[in-house]
């Protein structure tokens, strides 16, 4: 497979990488915890039928500048500038995990920003009675087992490539963890619940059936809060990062949803 085209969007004076591949209407993707250190099989599969545009939020692989963002408002403005700069205004938007929290929030704050929304195990809410596992209290060697149900698939995305500098690769992953923590610490509750009702566009919620980090019950909480047409689908044999564990099933569910809701306003 050939790689994506790469360009960058400047946010607060820092270059943020934007990967792009495929033809047709743009489909924005905000990756999950750890970001996208590589072009992933999930992105590749989506690019078979759509023009996939995957920007990196500040601090995630390919982008710097997370340490200039102090408040949730700072993050939201940065995310909006990044998505707009990547040409994703009015596009369909997929967000995974921390990217899901950000995608949902920008869709709520700027209701015309996204056309349709796919949230894959999104953060953003917190339930004291069903907390899930804290991925920030896990040492780096154990993080894969926490986030993923498929060690090989996880390693295929996050493992150190043979031709890369090991130290710099691991520093990049550590920086991505920091950026995620900067948005989500300590609970992952971004107060999104106060804004969810503003999302009136069709929204698909995808959940790995073995997600230990954001429990399945959160899908129901999202559905209860969202203001438009919603649907929950479960991806079998997948952990928190379903896009990485089961790329074909996840990309298939995204494609089916986008086909089915085509023609929605």
């Amino acid at each position: 497979m050939s790689g994506p085209k790469e360009r960058s969007v400047e946010v607060n004076g820092h270059a943020c990488r934007v990967w792009e591949k495929g033809d047709g209407d743009p489909l924005g993707v905000l990756p999950g915890i750890g970001g996208a250190p590589r072009w992933t099989p999930f992105l590749e599969m989506l690019s078979a039928t759509r023009r996939v545009v995957a920007p990196s939020l500040p601090g995630f692989p390919g982008a710097l500048g997370h340490d200039a963002l102090d408040s949730h408002l700072d993050w939201m403005i940065a995310a909006h500038e990044l998505l707009a700069g990547a040409g994703l205004e009015g596009a369909d938007l997929v967000g995974v995990s921390v990217g899901g929290a950000v995608a949902a929030d920008v869709a709520a704050i700027w209701p015309t920003l996204a056309r349709r929304l796919v949230l894959i195990s999104p953060y953003g809410l917190f339930d004291e009675d069903d907390t899930g596992v804290d991925p920030f209290a896990v040492r780096p060697p154990d993080i894969g087992r926490c986030l993923s149900a498929d060690a090989d698939a996880y390693d295929g995305v996050f493992g150190v490539p043979e031709d890369e500098d090991r130290v710099e690769w691991l520093v990049t992953l550590a920086r991505a963890q920091e950026a995620a923590a900067r948005i989500l610490w300590p609970l992952g509750d971004t107060r999104l619940a106060r804004r969810l009702h503003r999302i009136r566009i069709p929204t698909l919620l995808l959940w790995g059936d073995r997600d230990r980090v954001v429990p399945r019950s959160y899908a129901d909480r999202f559905v209860a809060g969202l203001g438009g047409e919603t649907r929950i689908e479960i991806i079998p044999d997948a952990g928190h990062l379903a896009d990485i564990d089961r790329p074909a099933a996840t990309a298939g569910a995204v494609r089916e949803f986008l086909d089915r809701t085509n023609g929605s306003p």
């Binding site: 920030f136 209290a137 040492r139 154990d142 520093v171 550590a174 963890q177 920091e178 923590a181 900067r182």
Partner: peptide, 12 residues
């Protein structure tokens, strides 16, 4: 050991 570090606690 999971409590002995937090993402961003150590400087880059």
């Amino acid at each position: 050991p999971g409590f002995t570090d937090a993402p961003g606690y150590r400087t880059e």
